[in-house]
Design a protein around this nucleic acid. Sequence first.
DNA 1: CGTTCTTTTGACCGATTGGTCAAATTCAAT
DNA 2: ATTGAATTTGACCAATCGGTCAAAAGAACG
Lengths: 217, 217
Amino acid sequence: MTETSAIAQGAARRTANGKSRTRIQLRNRERILQAALQVFSQYGFRGATLDQIAGESGLSKPNLLYYFPSKEAMHQDLLQALLTAWLDPLRALDASGDPLEEILAYVKRKLELARDYPRESRLFANEILQGAPRILPILETDLRALVDETAETIRGWCAAGRLAPVDPVHLIFSIWALTQHYADFQVQVTAVLGQDNPFEAAEAHLETLFRRLLTPG
Amino acid sequence: MTETSAIAQGAARRTANGKSRTRIQLRNRERILQAALQVFSQYGFRGATLDQIAGESGLSKPNLLYYFPSKEAMHQDLLQALLTAWLDPLRALDASGDPLEEILAYVKRKLELARDYPRESRLFANEILQGAPRILPILETDLRALVDETAETIRGWCAAGRLAPVDPVHLIFSIWALTQHYADFQVQVTAVLGQDNPFEAAEAHLETLFRRLLTPG
DNA sequence: CGTTCTTTTGACCGATTGGTCAAATTCAAT
DNA sequence: ATTGAATTTGACCAATCGGTCAAAAGAACG
């Protein structure tokens, strides 16, 4: 189990009300969140059990509940950490940069996220599949605002003839769909390809796809 | 609850060992499968409970188990019916037709499936997210063979210059990813769009996308 | 060393899980 | 109307669910 480079760090050095955390707390919260991520991302919230998470983390079940008040709290922590990491690359899209290269860079960054954090991607997919009961408000406000803003940028690029005309929001959906597919449907992809690392070919394919879609003229 | 036009018909008039089914059996098996589809597609296999399915179907829990030997059996029935319906459009791709129009027709058909049978799409997504424990063998044999075959057709089209050069398998992945996204992530799509029916715009967008990707020259 | 605080755990709780079964009810065909 | 089969259900089961608690074990510090 790799502990390096986790998106969801339970390792905030201070708790919500300011108390500092011990070395042991830091280590164990992280172990629990990693185990919870593993289990939640595979079975969804309802399908996951504390016993599975306990087994995966190597801690006893009551010990989990010493660090987290409930199963729900673990899931919340994971989702919250995920959402910021998930949306950041979209924020990084620079309106003053070269349109095509900006978008291709975003595609590449998103595909790298899918490659390096497939469990996080599947956790998110599970939440959406279940109707997003815990993050729907965020989707309708924060995410929607961010997408609207980005769409406006893209619309500007199209209007200026620097990008082939395209529906900006559906373009964003396409980027999400294509990149997340390689994480969420990894089992299917590798089953069909009969090989383990589709990401190199995927990157080349997606660059071709978006270049042809968006190159003006 | 619409009962018309279900992909997963539990309504085979004869059981596996040849016994014919009564009117009541036909009706109740169908009601159970529809309810099970609703629940499984939202919560996954593990997260779904017989009590939920019982409530959704309006039948008592022991009554469910009069028509199906187990929760597992309901899930199996749904997956099996789904798989054939899911793969058929790909089989319908005609090597002797016009390349671009054949592929665009497939994209359209697949998007219609996502629009008309989103629960089936989510059921499949859930199964894959969980590692495809019940259908991995089928993916590795039947699906892979079908994809290989189709890829060969597409490769031929590319080689003949009738289609812009493209990785055929990743093209197929792209079609799946883009069309299923509108079913599996419907909640997110409508939350961001703030409107309910994204499919009309999606169809136009996807036609543009694949036309630009695949038009030769 | 002893003391205090943190961490861990075994035993346990009521609720829910998938599933069983015998008895009751409804149906279809005479 | 009677009968025999098909259907439905209330009561029940062992296992598992998320979560509690008091007591034990481990760190930290003077």
